[in-house]
Amino acid sequence: MPSDDVMKQATLKGIAGRDAYGLTLAQLGKENENIVVMAADALESTKGIYFAKEFPERTFNFGIAEANMVGAAAGMALRGKVPVVAFYGFLTMRVCEQVRTDICYPRLNVKIAATASGLAMGAGGSTHHGLEDIAIMRSFPNMTIVCPASPIETVKATRAVIADHDGPVYLRLVRGADFGGTEELYDREDIPFEIGKAIILNEGEDVSIVATGQVVGLALQAGRALEREGISARVINMHTVKPIDVEAIKRAAKETTGIVTIEEHSTIGGLGDAVCSVVCEECIPTRVRKIGIRDKFCSVGPTSELWSKYGLSKENIIDVAKSIVQD
């Protein structure tokens, strides 16, 4: 388990996901001297800075040159280091070939922490939105993709992927502090975190809501609202998009009338498609409706308003869930 200090800080309301990650990383650095941290001139904003203060000799700033950094991470991992490489989520596209060829193909123990994923840098515009990364990373053999939903889950996930997992990991972090709707998660240190095992946040029988990352909070809010209207919603936190929890999806498909998926990502190739793939291949007759960014570049704007504009909202989840139940 994470140290009490880190847990305490991560459970403070308002802490950002990336800080929860950075604090945990610094803690892990004390436990394993092979961990090295690499940044591309974003050491502070990707929160490697906590680690850097404790372990400057194990911190490497590669300047604004992500491809070289990823290649160097592969070289470090060849000699038993555990490189943790951080950059903004949209830059996953910049380095995807290096990640595929230099890290996934030889199955090296490199951890990629993508901060500011999804629409976190809303005002940055589409140049800075990271909405394709899950799709790209899903297609690489040997890659594990984890998207924590809350600071407390970020602490657990960071430890799980760095300390307890040998192999390439894509850790998709959120930037900001607003984890609206995940109050339960703040207080639930007892929820076990296991890579590849979905967390059923609410048992339900009428409809399933499968979410990953920061929008798990919206799924929880929607689930509660549906309950008030007499619709029993199963809320599933699919923090690991790959390898996905096939059994949780099969149960949802069989035991409820349909599945709503929600992700702060394109609806092409992300969580929704992963869920569809399971139900199709398992031949389970059901209905899956995907909420996410529908094959478009998004506008400039505050993240919360972009979420509303593109359907990442409690209301939209409720409408879509009802459309399944009432169909």
Binding site: A67, N68, G75, M76, A77, D102
Partner: peptide
């Protein structure tokens, strides 16, 4: 184009 970066990582770790 990949090899020199990998070499940088190995050399750094050495």
């Amino acid at each position: 184009g990949h090899g020199l970066s990998i070499g940088v990582g190995i050399a750094l770790s050495l």
